[in-house]
């Protein structure tokens, strides 16, 4: 267990280092640095800029400086477009917004997906099963920005139930979280259905039924635990997908989260901010995957961590 953790942490470190090096090389390949496109910049001002962002040092020195800053102080440097903001500041501001949106979306996806999957599996080939599974197929194919556009048309403009955009109240989080979570609810519903159907046909379920357990107990206590395993292993990709999806959803609903900042950084050519956020996303995702693996091993005693 300890060995497993150490091994995985080393892999995470290596992955981060690889991403850092790749993005550093990419960034330094822009000839003349990111300020080259600023036309009205006198040589003196340019020099000051380069100095400020440590771009006047030789390449290998920049590399070691940034790497040591990152490893010892978790310092991702200064933002190039937002004056007087460090990359850490931007992340610290955006992360709570994105995290609450992501958690909302994940909870919504799990609740809806599990419920729909169980209904489908228990009343197999009923009208509910067919309807829910068709809806799930639609949910998987529909890009979240299309879903968001349609929901905004219907629920914001046609029937004014929700506010259109912004950040601050719980109401403003509902629609973005639904748009973000819907495709994952669809996947989870499918996985739950398949898993539950497979488990329900096994011998130990027949035994449980034969000894006279009530149906509810058979399903909830015996079957669901096994049926949940594929769902848990899907959580890793789901978290990655929710992070990605939040790029679009935050932009549509004007939420000041990480995703908005990242896209802003990309379109404003704020290379240092974009690079820092890529690193942050990588760290977040690899950590989440580690947690999911641990949860999986805890749920399924047959899984050995190594």
């Amino acid at each position: 267990m300890i060995l497993f953790l150490v091994k995985r942490l080393i892999w995470i470190g290596l992955t981060l280092w690889a991403v850092f090096t790749a993005s550093f090389l990419l960034m330094s390949s822009v000839p003349g640095g990111p300020f080259q496109s600023e036309r009205n910049m006198s040589p003196e001002v340019r020099l000051r800029w380069l100095e400020r962002y440590d771009l006047d040092a030789p390449l290998h020195e920049q590399y070691t400086n940034q790497l040591t800053g990152l490893v010892t102080r978790f310092d991702l440097g200064l933002s190039m477009s937002l004056q007087d903001f460090t990359v850490n500041d931007v992340i610290a501001q955006g992360f709570p917004v994105s995290a609450s949106l992501g958690i909302f979306a994940l909870v919504f996806a799990l609740a809806l997906g599990l419920a729909a999957g169980m209904v489908s599996a228990l009343w197999r080939q009923s009208i509910w099963d067919v309807a829910l599974m068709s809806l799930a197929t639609l949910g998987i194919a529909l890009p979240n920005f299309v879903l968001a556009s349609v929901l905004i048309l219907l629920l914001v403009f046609k029937l004014p139930i929700f506010p259109s955009a912004g950040w601050g109240s719980l109401e403003q989080l509902v629609l973005p979280a639904i748009c973000l979570g819907a495709p994952f609810a669809a996947y989870i519903a499918r996985l739950t259905r398949t898993g539950l159907l497979e488990i329900l046909s096994q011998d130990f379920i027949r035994t449980a039924r034969a000894k006279g357990l009530p149906a509810r107990r058979v399903v909830l206590r015996h079957a669901l635990r096994g049926a949940l395993l594929p769902v848990v292993s899907f959580l890793g990709p789901a978290i990655a997908g929710i992070l990605t999806g939040s790029l679009v959803v935050e932009r549509i609903f004007a939420l000041p989260g990480l995703g908005s900042h990242f896209i802003e950084a990309a379109t404003q050519r704020d290379y240092s901010l974009a690079m820092g956020m890529v690193l942050f996303y990588t760290a977040l995702l690899t950590t989440m995957n580690l947690l999911v693996d641990l949860a999986y091993a805890w749920l399924d005693p047959r899984v050995k961590l190594d």
Binding site: I12, T15, T244, L247, A266, V278, Y281, T282, T286
Partner: peptide, 10 residues
């Protein structure tokens, strides 16, 4: 384990 979408955008 690398979130490629972010790397690609970069």
């Amino acid at each position: 384990s690398i979130p490629f979408i972010f790397v690609v955008i970069f």
